[in-house]
Each structure stands twice: as C-alpha cells, then as structure tokens.
C-alpha cells in the first residue's frame, strides 16, 4: 500500500508547497487563514497517529493526550518559569516523548484492544484530573492558579512575537510557522518510512512471525516509533498552544480524538498522504455542516462509521483502486487499437 514512488511523493510535495506559498497572497480573510492553520494542526497529529496506527500497527488512542502534554508543557514552562515560547517548544516536545515512552513501556507488550483501552483511559484520566483540579499552586494577583491550570487552562503565557513584528498580518506569520512545522513533520515521517524502520513496520504489520524470525524486536521498534511520533506530536502541541495563546482541557475530549481518527480513516490508514486528504475532506465537510450547526457531531459520527464500512482503505486507497482500474483499461484499450492497426 505504501509503494508510491519517491518521485510521485516529491511531485505532490512540490505542488503542495507552491499552493502553500500562494495561499496567503490569495486569501485575505483572517478567519479562513485561521481555519487553514487549524487544519494544519489536525494534519500534524493525524500524520503522527497514522505513523503509529497505520504503519507501526499500534492501536493507540493517546494522540490528543500527547498533543496536550506538548501544549501544556510549553504553557507551563512559560507560565511558571517565564521562558519564552521559542525556548520552551523543544523541551516540551521532549516531555511529550518521555510521557509517550512511559505509556509505551506500560502497554506495548500487549496487543490490540488492550493498548487502545489503556491509552483511552490515560486520556480520560488526564482530562478528569485537570478539570477537577482546584488546589492553588501559585497566586497571580488575586487569582489562584492551579498547577494544571484547572478547567480554564493556561492563557497569556506568551506568543511567537509575530504580533509585534507583523502587526495586522500576524496571522500570516503564524501560518508560515505552522506550515514549516507541517513540512518538517512530513519530511521526517517520509524519511522514517523509507528507512529501515519503515521496513521493520511493514514486516511487523504484515507478518509478525516473520519479523521476529528476521530479528526485528517488535517491542523496541514500537517503543521507538511511540517516542518519535510523540516528539513531533508534542512539538505540534506546543506550537498550537503558542498560536492560540491558550491551552485547556477541552482538547482532551473524545470528539477531538475522534476527529483525528476520522481524518486518518477517511484519508486512508497506512498511506502517506491519507491524513492530509482526510484533513481537507473533513475540515471541508465540517465547514459545510456549520450551516446545520447542531447536526455536526451527529454527521461526524455517521461519517466515521460509514467510511470504515464503505471505504476500507480510505479515499487514497479508493483513488489508487480507480487509478489501477483506469490503467488496466487504458492498457487494454491500447492493445485493441494496436490489433486494429
């Protein structure tokens, strides 16, 4: 499934980069640009979850938890220790990676549903502990601030400095930063997949017995991908916190997690471009469903269920089937025309 040639990937990437550069020149609306930035965040988390689930075959439900750890760590470093956002990003991503590796150590020796349940429970526990946190950690003026930020979360802990620098065009600055983040994440993912680790993933997923016989240590490979993807997800979480200048427990809620999963499933699990396709489609559908506001979540649920049942390999998989079908027809067509000649 993953055998798109490097050249195709490069071509797609070039087109995308041109589009990405053109976007701020073509779109004036700050709202639309803001939605595109949001979509890029979703695409970042989705691509990393796809790496974990689609390629490495770990059914983890922790992606938003890891994202939140990255965001919270960034916010807390800035808020409590007064760091600048830029300085906090990488250490926070590291915290997310360590967090993820700890989860991995606890559950990666198990399979399938056990991993899913444990990681889901971790997410839920994080949410509950943050929301119910009422203990004062520091006193800011007359306001009491909890260690975890409590139900309100953290805000006003600093930003990228794009507002001072670009004034009214600050959104374009942030857009550039998030775009860069997305490109870095995609490139790293691509390198991982084309390298020896990508081969190990494929072996483990397709034939675990064979992989073990070839000396691939499943546990170690999975732990590594757990840590790596968490670093990138955490980095995205930090950038997210800095972009919105707020991070709160709502990102840990189930619908957020489902949105990420839906993106990957609809785009095509285990395909490189699937998460991006899924993000475009779902964000588009979401915008359209804004008209019928109250039915949005209902629609999202039905879309997820229907796409698992009707699109087993996602849109990218369906597109490939179509291409292959067209290719076969074309070659068949050529043969007949040759026969006629």
């Amino acid at each position: 499934m993953t055998k798109t040639s490097g050249r195709t990937d490069l071509l797609i990437a070039l087109v995308l980069i041109v589009v990405a550069i053109a976007i701020p020149f073509q779109i004036d609306s700050r709202y639309v640009l803001g939605q595109i930035v949001l979509a890029l965040f979703y695409a970042c988390i989705a691509s990393q979850w796809n790496l974990v689930f689609g390629f490495a075959g770990i059914f983890s439900l922790a992606p938003v938890a890891i994202f939140a750890v990255g965001g919270y760590a960034t916010a807390m470093l800035c808020f409590f220790l007064g760091w600048s956002v830029w300085a906090a990003l990488l250490p926070a991503a590291l915290v997310a990676a360590v967090f993820s590796v700890l989860i991995g150590l606890a559950c990666l020796r198990l399979t399938g549903v056990y991993v899913a349940l444990l990681t889901l429970a971790v997410t839920q526990v994080m949410y509950l502990l943050i929301v119910t946190d009422t203990e004062c950690f520091v006193q800011v003026g007359s306001v009491c601030r909890q260690l975890t930020g409590g139900p309100g979360g953290f805000s006003r802990f600093g930003d990228f400095g794009t507002r001072q620098l670009l004034k009214g065009d600050w959104m374009i600055g942030n857009y550039a930063i998030v775009c860069t983040l997305f490109v870095v994440i995609m490139v790293v993912t691509w390198v991982i997949l084309k390298g020896p680790m990508g081969h190990a993933f494929r072996a483990i997923r397709d034939n675990p017995g064979y992989a073990v016989a070839r000396g691939i240590n499943r546990f170690r490979v999975q732990l590594l991908v757990f840590g790596l993807s968490a670093f990138l997800t955490g980095l995205a979480g930090g950038v997210y916190a800095a972009h919105f200048q707020v991070i709160g427990p709502t990102i840990l809620q189930l619908p957020q997690l489902m949105f990420i999963i839906a993106i990957v499933v609809i785009g095509g699990t285990g395909t490189f471009w699937g998460p991006l396709v899924g993000t475009l489609v779902l964000m588009g559908a979401d915008e359209l469903m804004r008209e019928v506001g109250e039915f949005r979540t209902l629609g999202l649920g039905l879309i997820i269920a229907a796409s698992i049942v009707l699109l087993p390999n996602g849109l990218v998989g369906r597109f490939r089937d179509l291409m292959r079908y067209a290719g076969r027809n074309r070659s068949a067509g050529l043969k007949t025309s040759k026969d006629i000649q």
């Binding site: 689930f53 059914f59 399938g112 549903v113 899913a116 189930l254 619908p255 489902m258 999963i261 839906a262 499933v265 039915f295 979540t297 209902l298 999202l300 649920g301 039905l302 879309i303 997820i304 269920a305 229907a306 698992i308 049942v309 087993p312």
Partner: peptide, 16 residues
C-alpha cells in the same frame, strides 16, 4: 481496531 473505530462513530451519532 476498525470495529472499535466504527462503533465509536455510531456512539457519537447516537449520543448526539
């Protein structure tokens, strides 16, 4: 995994 994801979709739809 696919059954889990699809039934979560159904759950969200039902809850909503």
């Amino acid at each position: 995994a696919n059954v889990m994801i699809a039934t979560v979709g159904a759950a969200i739809a039902l809850e909503n």
